[in-house]
Computed example of a mutant assay.
Amino acid sequence: MTIVNSTSISPLRQRLIDDMNMRHFGRDTQRNYLRDVARFASWLGRPPDKAAGEDLRRFQIEQSDAGMAAPTMNSIVSALRFFFTFTLDRPDLARKLYRIKHPRKLPVVLSREEVARLLNATTCLKHQAALSVAYGAGLRVAEVSMLKVRDVDSERMLLRVERGKGGQYRNAMLSDDLLGLLRQWWKVGYRQGELHRDGWLFPGQHYLKPISTRQLHRVVVEAAQAASITKRVGPHTLRHSFATHLLEDGIDIRIIQTLLGHAKLDNTAFYTKVATRTIRAVTSPLDKLAMFIPGAGTPDG
C-alpha cells in the first residue's frame, strides 16, 4: 500500500517503502515509519544509511534527556530497527536500539450500557454500523475502515479481515444482530449509490475510497459527547470493551486472543485487569471463613 509518490523521493526512501509494501504494512504504519526514519535523519544531519552505532546510542540518550515519552521513543525504535534490519541489511546496528520499559496504562473500557448509549447516539446508519463492527467483532479502527462488502460472509457468519495488523489475515466473528444491522446498511447504502458489491463496506466522501480512521475517531468522540459519556474514548475503546465483556462472560482467553488477532497471549491477558465483573464473581477466602456473619461467632469462640 504505497502512500507516497515514488517519483519524488530518494532511492533509499523508496527501498524502505518497497520493504514495507512487501510485508503488507498498513497505511498508518508506513506513514509512521517514514516519519520516524526522517526524524532520525534530520537529527543525524546526513543520510541515515551513513549512521554508526554510536550515532544511534547518542540519539536515544538525547531524546530521553529532552523528555521524549517512552511510548514515542519505542515507536521510533521499531521504525529504525525495521529500517536497519531489512532495508539496509544491518542487524548489527538494529541491536544498538533499546526499547524503554514503562508502566502500561489500563485501557478505558465502557460498560455495556454505555456502549448501547454510544451506538444509539450516532447520527446515521453508516456510522452506527461501523462502530457496531468495532465493538461487535472487536476490530481495530483501520480494520473497520478497510472492510469491503465481500468481506461479510453470511454463510459462515464471519468477517474476513484481510488488512489486519502486520498484514495478517484472520476471521472475525459476525453475530446475528450485527449481520442484521449490516444488511440494513446495505439496503440504504446501495439505494443511495454509496455501496457497491465490489466496493468498501464503509465508503468515505467518495465511494471509491474507504472512510478514514480519522473520521471514525471523530464519529466516536461526537457520539460519546452526545451520549453524555465523560470517559476519554476513541474507536479502540470499543475493541477494549469487546475483549473485556467477553472475558467477563467466561469466554476462554485463548479464544479471545484469536478473535482479536493478538500474536501474544500476554496482550490479551492484560484485559483481566479491567474485567470488573470477573473480579466481583470471585469469592474472597475471607468470606468463606464466615467470621463476620451475625450469629456465626467470633475468632475466640
Rank of each mutant, 00 (worst) to 15 (best):
V152L: 14
P203V: 02
P48H: 05
A79T: 08
D151M: 08
S175H: 01
E155Y: 08
L44Q: 05
E162P: 03
F83I: 05
D287L: 15
P235L: 10
Y169V: 12
P48D: 00
Q192M: 12
D287Q: 13
P103Q: 09
F84M: 02
G138S: 10
A66S: 15
V115S: 08
S64M: 14
S175T: 14
D198A: 05
T278G: 14
S78G: 10
Y207P: 05
S64F: 09
S78H: 06
V220D: 07
L110H: 06
M1N: 13
H102D: 01
R58K: 10
E155D: 12
S154N: 04
P294I: 12
A130V: 01
T213M: 07
Y98W: 11
K101W: 09
L88E: 09
P285A: 06
P71Q: 07
S8P: 05
T278M: 13
S132V: 02
K165I: 04
R183F: 09
P210W: 10
R81S: 11
Q257K: 15
G297P: 02
F86Q: 11
M20T: 00
D300K: 14
L106M: 11
A275I: 03
L80F: 03
V161T: 02
L259A: 06
I3N: 10
I229V: 04
P203E: 00
A281E: 06
R214L: 04
D176P: 07
F40I: 00
R218S: 14
S284R: 06
C124Y: 06
T230M: 11
L125T: 08
T278Y: 07
G138L: 06
R280Q: 14
L259E: 06
A38F: 01
A116V: 13
F202L: 01
Q184M: 10
G204Y: 00
V109L: 00
P203R: 01
L88V: 00
A172N: 02
R46D: 04
L147H: 06
V77E: 05
R57D: 10
H102S: 07
G250C: 02
M68N: 10
T213Q: 04
D89W: 06
L16F: 11
M1T: 11
M73A: 12
G180D: 09
A172E: 06
G67N: 07
G167S: 00
T272L: 08
A130H: 02
G45N: 09
E143T: 10
P235D: 08
S64L: 13
D266F: 00
V149C: 15
D18Q: 14
A226L: 11
